[in-house]
Amino acid sequence: MKQLLALLFAFVSLVRAQTEIEELVLEGRKQIEVGWSSFDKQSMMDARSKFERALNVESGNKYAVYYLAYAEYRLLTQSFSKKDDATFDQMIDGAIAHCEKAIELGNGWSEPKAILSALYGYKIAKNWMSAITLGPKSNGLIEEALEKEPDNPRVLLIRGISYFNKPSMFGGSVDKAQEDFEESVHLFELQKNVAALDPAWGYTDALAWLGKAYEQKEMNDRALNAYKKALSVNPAFGWVKYNLLPKLEGKLAATIE
């Protein structure tokens, strides 16, 4: 009877630990989305800490490593746009290492490969001449990710962002970006029954970027719809709510006047 109780105790503890890791990861994931929507560094750093604590209990948990890299990707995106070089420089190498570890733990997982490709893109944007060494790396990763998961909307989103931001002479193209964003939005809308811990971020980002691509091509009505759709999914999405949409509405109002 004693042995049975001990076994039962061990089993319940294991299940409980797994559940707690999952809870912590899910909680952190939610915090990133809230933080990203409101551009709140504290919230994203809190989320990052949660993943670190999950790894403190189970160092080989691929989701905890992936979301740690994802939180850092969001923080780096924020520091890049705010020109916060100190945070960027401190975090970039760690983020790259976490992506590499997630790729390894996930046996060539496409999701962290796409993020890693975006991180190299940031490094190139900081110093365009580094494209000669990092460009092939960044391109290679995104192509590998797409080869493995051609219908992954986040991989298409990241490739689209790369097409959008790259100068045309390095292969950048708003047309290609638009195609990727449209396909990404389409795939997000088809997605059903995503497993609890699998990445689910990116739908509103894809809509926002699609709106930007439309705006670039003077397809302002379509852009307006994309932004409004993004806000209907996430009314607190600050980038669209306080930046993209008001700017476009202002531009349209000025055209009418």
Partner: peptide, 19 residues
């Protein structure tokens, strides 16, 4: 130092520092 992660090793318990 804000954003520091303080936690108990091999446990989920911990917290972040404030501003």
């Amino acid at each position: 130092l804000p954003f520091a992660n303080v936690y108990i090793v091999k446990s989920f318990d911990g917290g972040n520092t404030d501003e």
